[in-house]
Design a protein around this nucleic acid. Structure first.
Lengths: 210, 210
DNA sequence: ATTTGGTCTGGCCAATTGGTTTGACCTTTC
DNA sequence: GAAAGGTCAAACCAATTGGCCAGACCAAAT
């Protein structure tokens, strides 16, 4: 691949990052192509040279996010210890939420609108959820955790772990963390893990079901 | 008050409801005054006769929401039973989230943007949180519940209870509930209550700390 | 009947928007 | 070195937007 190809790729990457950043802040309609261009360090004409339309860039940003998530939040079924699986999953999700809040925010915005775009890509989501549900149900069947509705359990984990990306501003205010300083992922992951493990009947410290 | 005054008030109410509905869907910039007018059953000119600007209407909608919440989500300290207080609080929040998802969504959008408007009205929030925190701390001190960071505890309750308003579309898809049918508040409230009570060391069934 | 005050309408305008065009510039290839 | 093709900036365009205005309408008061 030649140098120009690399340059092209770098620009596209910058555009995508800018898109996620800006769309997350003010939504599809609330983000002008001029703002996108500025945010990506390009002129407006240059931006339009690389993208076909604002709407398509929006969809691309969403697809990029769910693709990335599929990689990061894989639930490995090879561990026999539910406590460890849950703990690791929550820790990864919290960390990602705090490190890339724009992704979570953009995703939330889209769902909150009724998911007009992502609606067409829900097949993958369903698959993942069903795989995770099956795993949780198998834990219940083997008596490793207390009975629980796996879908509600998963959705509640998402709710808690994603909350701190979306409500970053509120959390900072209530916890007294200034804007420059990062929020501590361990603080949230700790508490969330304790809660969900307790829900499963697992003592947070030793990882064994009661 | 005369009939014309009533009419005026009814129109303003319709405008406010339309504002919450539409702003929640597409945000401040994404909502045109024409759409607001249509949604309120008025002409655009008529709308502009009743409001001074789109931005001000947006702020009014936000203030209306937090004002309403202050009334609904008051945590009464007169009950000596933490379990009952928590259970009632969660039930009210879930019910409200499902019955008026637009309010929760609009609020979430604003916070997610960094709360540029609501930032100026955070005094009230802080007060409420501090009152609730004091109550929770007193429970801990009296040994009624297990030790817990009250702010994290509260934020996690919000996360879970508000989740189903924001992620309504996703929840419907995963639970297989068609768009016409309402989501069952008890299903979510049940699970959430169980979880947070367990976190406090309260057995969900009898309401006594272990 | 006429005045008066509030309400409403259609038409209008200035500003902004997404996107295009034109022509210049640069790099590669022959 | 010149032809070709990719890249870019400035000007531009059509469409949309928030908001305004002159006057029509209308109910109540005189």
């Amino acid at each position: 691949m030649g140098v120009p190809q690399q340059r092209r790729r770098a620009i596209r990457k910058a555009i995508l990052a800018a898109a996620i950043r800006e769309f997350a802040k003010n939504g599809l309609a609330g983000t002008t192509t001029q703002v996108l261009a500025d945010s990506a360090g390009l002129s407006k004409a240059q931006l339009h040279y690389y993208i076909s339309s604002k709407e398509e860039l929006y969809e691309e940003a969403l697809l990029h996010i769910i693709g990335k998530w599929k990689d990061i939040f894989f639930i490995s079924a090879d561990s026999t210890d539910p406590g460890q699986v849950i703990r690791s999953y929550i820790a990864r999700k919290v960390r990602h939420s705090l490190e890339h809040p724009e992704m979570t925010r953009l995703f939330a915005r889209e769902i909150s609108r009724g998911a007009p775009i992502l609606r067409n890509h829900w097949g993958a989501l369903k698959e993942d959820v069903e795989r995770a549900s099956a795993l949780i149900n198998s834990w219940v069947a083997r008596g490793l955790i207390h009975p629980v509705d796996p879908v509600l359990f998963l959705m509640n984990i998402w709710a808690v772990t994603q909350h701190y990306a979306e409500y970053d501003a509120q959390a900072r205010f209530l916890l007294g963390v200034p804007d420059g300083e990062p929020l501590d992922p361990d603080l949230f992951a700790e508490e969330a893990t304790r809660m969900f493990l307790l829900r499963c009947g697992i003592k947070p410290d030793d990882g064994a079901a009661t």
